[in-house]
């Protein structure tokens, strides 16, 4: 990391581990869970959020001194909404099927608390360069959890990754299925996402006991 000073590197590194937006800051869970049944949707969602956060943080940081603090929420919403409309239109144009799968959840990036949370907590008080790094870092931290959840749900639930049958064919009984393996249909239903995230939190906090909450 010769390009970045240590302080700047931490802006990207921290959200990936000990200050993760989903498992520690409890932000952005809203739109994260419903679309993680497939890895592909998770990755697209992560990239969309990465774009919106990176650009949004820079824009807010550039205009932070001219926003009257009373109407800052509306200004932030307008900035995010504009960026999300761009993402939505691009997806509709180039990946129509995927944008149908994600349906309203692309729109819900607007109300993704990570974005508002980072605008409020960081972009309003820092220069555009640091704000950009912070946005990228947090979006990556969000994306990592999304991809982990998507990976396990798709692998255990449908036996596929990115739609490729990695465990063999369940109907022709090849691969793992020939010895009696069954897909776990439970992983497909929405509540499974919550339980997977719960387990991720459990693992993370067992490894780093400083993160354990007081009872």
């Amino acid at each position: 990391m010769a390009l970045l000073s240590k302080k700047d590197a931490n802006l990207i590194k921290d959200p990936l581990t000990d200050n993760n937006p989903i498992t520690i800051q409890v932000l952005g869970i809203c739109s994260a869970l419903a679309i993680t049944a497939e890895l592909k949707a998770s990755v697209v969602m992560a990239i969309s959020v990465l774009f919106v956060m990176g650009v949004g943080n820079v824009v807010i940081s550039l205009i932070r001194n001219i926003i009257p603090s009373k109407i800052r929420i509306i200004v932030q919403l307008v900035v995010v909404a504009t960026l999300v409309i761009v993402v939505d239109q691009v997806l509709k144009a180039f990946a129509y099927d995927l944008s149908k799968t994600l349906s309203v959840f692309i729109g819900l990036i607007i109300t993704n608390c990570i974005i508002m949370g980072r605008f409020e907590a960081f972009a309003l008080g820092n220069g555009p360069r640091r704000a950009f790094l912070d946005g990228i870092g947090n979006a990556l931290g969000y994306g990592v959890i999304l991809v982990i959840v998507g990976f396990f749900r798709e692998l255990l639930g449908s036996g596929t990754l990115f739609g490729i049958k990695v465990l063999g064919d369940p109907i022709a009984k090849t691969g793992l299925y020939s010895i009696g393996y069954e897909n776990n249909g439970f992983m497909i239903i929405p509540p499974a996402a919550l339980i997977v995230v719960g387990i991720i939190i459990w693992v993370q906090r067992s490894r780093n006991r400083a993160l354990i909450e007081e009872a």
Partner: peptide, 11 residues
Amino acid sequence: APLRGLGITFI
């Protein structure tokens, strides 16, 4: 202990 608070709420 590691499940306290957020983890158990999720589950």
